[in-house]
Each structure stands twice: as structure tokens, then as C-alpha cells.
């Protein structure tokens, strides 16, 4: 590719088109806001309930769990605004054979398939999560320095990439098994587990939530960044795991694409 920034420009263009399209439906913003606020109120009530019976949960204080909640909501917003819509469309395209339209375009097909859809109103959760996170950061005793803020940002980015890889790997399954719609519901169910730090789960579940479904990396690790528990070695390990998973998903994408028969027959 001659221009190194071309993929970014392409993604930005798609984002603008989706945003312009969705901005037409402004009532949806308020509906989404009401839904997000009800969800946050419920989550806060649960947190209050748990901490009315105990002072700490698996070594995490109430304010630290508030940080986990903030990251969980924020990451959930990213998933529903960016990752899930693209993957759902990919599943539909494979089933209907309309992936042809993406494959025949003069750009990388994986990039196109991953950036075509943005649901900006779902992004309300990103804002709500950021607010919860900011409140938590103020209340946590440990002062949030420049390094832990940076660690948090890097961990958040790595987490988002890992969730993307995980979703894409599952979606690529659609090249073999056509009916994949159920994974959306399955993922939503499992993602709820991320509302609590993975360290409280028993061993076998914790391993599952770390490497099979990367909830540990997506939610707990960034929250550790905010609460000053994250060390450089863990972050480097997460970066290495992310790189490996990215390479693996890329390979899987190419293999899966060879199975794709298309609609023109």
C-alpha cells in the first residue's frame, strides 16, 4: 500500500457516513440515555447491596469496584457501537452471499468488514462509563499519576483489540457454520461476568474468562490501571498476547475466506 494512513482515512470516512445517517434519528439518543441510566442505577444498587454485607470483595474495595463497573460500561459501549454491528453484518453477509460487495473493493477486505458499521447512539454508554470511571478515580485513595493513566489507556486499547479479535474469530466460524446468530446472545451473557474482577472467580472460570473470552484483559486489566494495581510486566504480557491473537485472527480470516463461495453462481 502506498499511503500508510489510508486504512485510517477509510475507517474515518465510514464512521462519518454512519454518523450522518444516525444523526437523523435524534429521539434514539434519549431512548438510549434512559436505558443506560436505568442500567447504571441498577448496577449501583447491586454494588451498594454487596457492600452493605462486606467491606471488600476478593481484595477489592467499593470504590475500586466502581472503577471496574465504569470500565465495563465503557467497553460495553465500544463493543455495541463498533465491534458487534460490524460482526453481525459480516455474519449476515456470509449467509446471504453479499460479502461479494466488500471483497471486490480495492481495499483490504478484513479492514472493510471491520469498519463498515458504527452505531453512534450506542456510544452513549462510552460517555456514561467514562463518568462512572472518573468518579471512581477521584474516590480511589491512590493518586492517579501520569503513568497509571497511561497504563490505563494502553490497557483499554489492548482490551478493545482483544475483544475485536475474539469476536472476529467467532464470526469467521460463519464461513463453516452458517447459522451463527446465537453467539451475540451468548457473548452478551458472558460479558456480564466482567462486571466483577476476574480474580473472584474460581480457577477454571478465571482461565476461561482470561484466554477463551478475554474479559480479564478487556475490563479487569484497565480497571487495575486506574486503581494503581497494574505493573509493567503484566501490561507487556497483555501486549504480547494481543499481538499473537491479532496474527492468529488474520490467518484465520484468510483461511475462512477461502471457504467463502459467494452469491454469484
Amino acid at each position: 500500500m502506498r499511503e500508510p494512513l489510508r486504512p485510517l482515512r477509510l475507517a474515518w470516512t465510514f464512521f462519518r457516513i454512519s454518523a450522518l445517517n444516525e444523526l437523523q434519528y435524534r429521539v434514539n439518543f434519549f431512548l438510549q440515555l434512559v436505558q443506560s441510566l436505568v442500567a447504571v442505577a441498577t448496577a449501583l444498587a447491586v454494588l451498594a447491596l454487596v457492600f452493605s454485607h462486606t467491606a471488600q470483595l476478593g481484595g477489592w474495595s467499593r470504590d475500586e469496584l466502581l472503577a471496574v463497573l465504569g470500565v465495563h460500561i465503557l467497553m460495553g459501549g465500544v463493543i455495541r457501537a463498533v465491534i458487534q454491528p460490524n460482526m453481525q453484518r459480516l455474519i449476515d453477509d456470509v449467509r446471504q452471499g453479499t460479502l461479494d460487495y466488500a471483497l471486490t473493493k480495492p481495499a483490504d477486505a478484513q479492514l472493510l468488514a471491520s469498519t463498515r458499521e458504527f452505531r453512534i447512539w450506542q456510544g452513549v454508554d462510552v460517555l456514561v462509563g467514562a463518568v462512572v470511571l472518573a468518579v471512581a478515580a477521584v474516590r480511589v485513595e491512590a493518586a492517579v499519576g501520569i503513568w497509571s493513566a497511561l497504563g490505563f489507556a494502553v490497557a483499554l486499547l489492548l482490551g478493545a483489540i482483544l475483544v475485536y479479535c475474539f469476536w472476529l474469530a467467532l464470526t469467521i466460524g460463519a464461513f463453516w457454520i452458517v447459522r451463527m446468530e446465537f453467539i451475540v446472545e451468548l457473548f452478551d451473557g458472558v460479558y456480564q461476568a466482567g462486571r466483577w474482577p476476574v480474580t473472584i472467580y474460581p480457577g477454571w472460570l478465571r482461565i476461561g474468562f482470561t484466554f477463551l473470552v478475554p474479559i480479564a484483559f478487556a475490563v479487569t486489566l484497565p480497571a487495575e490501571g486506574v486503581t494503581g494495581r497494574l505493573d509493567g510486566a503484566t501490561l507487556a504480557g497483555a501486549a504480547a498476547f494481543t499481538a499473537a491473537l491479532l496474527a492468529f485472527t488474520r490467518w484465520l480470516w484468510r483461511t475462512g475466506l477461502r471457504r467463502y463461495a459467494g452469491a454469484s453462481a
Binding site: 451473557g189 461476568a193 472460570l205
Partner: peptide, 9 residues
């Protein structure tokens, strides 16, 4: 997953 999460907590 839902009851398992509550149970663990």
C-alpha cells in the same frame, strides 16, 4: 452465566 455470576459473588 447469570446465576453463576451471582453465586460466585
Amino acid at each position: 452465566t447469570e446465576p453463576v455470576i451471582y453465586l460466585v459473588v
